[in-house]
Design a protein around this nucleic acid. Sequence first.
DNA 1: CCGCATCCTCATGGATACTG
DNA 2: CAGTATCCATGAGGATGCGG
Lengths: 217, 217
Amino acid sequence: MSRDYGQYCGLARALDVVGDRWNLLIVRQLLMGPARYGELREGLPGVATNLLTDRLRDLETAHVIERQLSGDSNAIAYALTEWGAQLREPIHALVRWSTPLMIRGPESDEFRPEWLLVALPALFEGRVPINESATVGIVVDGGMVQLRATKSGIDVGKPDGRELDAVLSANAHLVLGLAAGVLSLADVATLVRIDGDESAVRSFLDAAPRQNETSPL
Amino acid sequence: MSRDYGQYCGLARALDVVGDRWNLLIVRQLLMGPARYGELREGLPGVATNLLTDRLRDLETAHVIERQLSGDSNAIAYALTEWGAQLREPIHALVRWSTPLMIRGPESDEFRPEWLLVALPALFEGRVPINESATVGIVVDGGMVQLRATKSGIDVGKPDGRELDAVLSANAHLVLGLAAGVLSLADVATLVRIDGDESAVRSFLDAAPRQNETSPL
DNA sequence: CCGCATCCTCATGGATACTG
DNA sequence: CAGTATCCATGAGGATGCGG
């Protein structure tokens, strides 16, 4: 761990634990489920291997993550503890805050479709779909995530074999803009492809009231 | 700004802006209102002056804060932009997450009573007081914060001259434990002093259901 | 005083190479 | 595959200086 702030303040103490570079991004990866060292490396483009090792040790001693000597072999998997998993809330809040930073698009940044499994739940949080029985797939960059309507909200996950009412294909930039409500389907109609029932797609996107994000750009 | 993560991910982009050391603590200070350089320095024990200057510049160019050439003189005040103020949500979430880190007490850490103006709203968020017309003061370390019951929740702020139904005096450790719901008044009865109507105090504390925090300690 | 700027030292981060 | 080891660049933190 790097130097403590030495302040008896919840924010400062939290940052003492997860404020170091890469720490929250490691947690982001583990929010999608336990992962092996190599999988983490793959999902964290740009990380140096020594830093990844250091941070995993730090997070383990802080009880944010734990090593699982999984099953039959000597394979090590890293997983969030119950407390570590509660970082989902602050991370979701930061993702929502970042919307103005995302509307300029990916530029030369790396992208992994799996990251939508964290971003979309954050953006849809608290919103209830129009049609309570819709299920759609979203294809970005070769990866698919699934949106499923429930009474209480929008469930985002990996495809689970359920029948899809529609499949929307677009790039990450547009998908995030739609989910954040800064783009409407009409705005980008020519840039997305919808196979199946377009109204199923709308039952999710119309759940997100159009926002006038205060953009710094 | 330090090095970018280079990832098209909301969390990574957010951390590109506020992930550097001290940045979120500066925002914490400004959540309590605009502040002068010297006030920030005072509220951020441990910060080096060059770093404070650097970070203020960084946050300004990122449009998280702005300089206000306030009023009559050449006095500079720093204030959050509208977008910067929206960091309240992620900060509150981190404060709530930090509860297990706070229960061990201040130890040798610095403390400023004003920090309660950020911590208490975070801990009371979403909770509705029992008695809708209670107003109490909490005195910690020579500073007083005021809790006021409203229909929609608990308003935390500096004393505004309103008449107080009760005043609770305790140390920061106990106040945070009570607000987080990991301590009950009965647990610490001998360590806190209540002047006035104890039931007014209860109308806030009983709004917070006792939690079994998953503590890593 | 306030609001920085400069200098210096040391810890940390990053890239790459290497090993069990 | 899962890390270590090494080397270098950068950033943090403390002290001090300085103009207004």
